[in-house]
């Protein structure tokens, strides 16, 4: 079990290999398709992208008394062509589910970043690791807005590492 704190210290990413279970603690940011498109064009985002962690998720609405609703990962491949500009600006870890394109994997290695997966369809479990949540940017996007999440030991698995390995059996890119 490996523990990582945000912002991510790049030197630690080399230690990681596919299949490693990683527990992330600190502040992470959500973004899906629409938020990516806006963030790419946004010169003054409300958070520092350097060393940041992006979680591909669109939660359900929070019930009264809950921090957030169900919050599991969405399919990462939809963000493949949108990820590079953000990695160039410092994003170091992306969390989603499922296979991604070969072009993404290469760009990820070049930019010293890592792709991790969280268990898909485990939104109730994953939301229990989220300690606070607020909408940070693009509120009009609703569930697709960028949320700032404070997480404690958020469980992920390394899917693509910096040594060129990938975890998946099957799946075309």
């Amino acid at each position: 079990m490996i523990h990582l704190k945000t912002p991510i210290d790049v030197s630690r990413l080399k230690e990681l290999t596919v299949g490693d279970k990683v527990l992330i603690s600190g502040t992470i940011y959500t973004a899906r398709d629409q938020a990516h498109m806006r963030l790419i064009e946004d010169e003054n985002p409300a958070f520092d992208l350097e060393g940041s962690v992006i979680y591909y998720v669109g939660p359900t609405p929070a019930r009264p008394g809950q921090v957030i609703g169900s919050s599991g990962p969405t399919s990462a491949y939809r963000m493949d062509s949108l990820a590079t500009p953000l990695m160039k600006r410092g994003v170091k870890i992306m969390i989603g589910k499922g296979n991604r394109s070969e072009a993404f994997r290469k760009s990820m290695v070049e930019n010293n970043a890592i792709y991790m997966i969280a268990t898909g369809g485990a939104g109730a479990l994953l939301s229990s690791k989220i300690k606070s949540s607020k909408v940070l940017m693009y509120e009009d996007l609703g569930t697709e807005a960028i949320y700032e999440l404070v997480v404690d030991e958020f469980p992920c698995f390394v899917a693509y590492d910096l040594h060129g390995n990938q975890i998946f059996k099957g799946g075309t890119s």
Partner: peptide, 26 residues
């Protein structure tokens, strides 16, 4: 690894059953 993923899925459905959070965000 694969055991631990199925374990997550099973724990998830127990938590969802308590009524605070749906099984999946989708």
């Amino acid at each position: 690894l694969s055991k631990s993923i199925l374990d997550d899925i099973l724990t998830n459905q127990e938590l969802a059953r308590q009524g605070n959070s749906p099984l999946c965000q989708d």
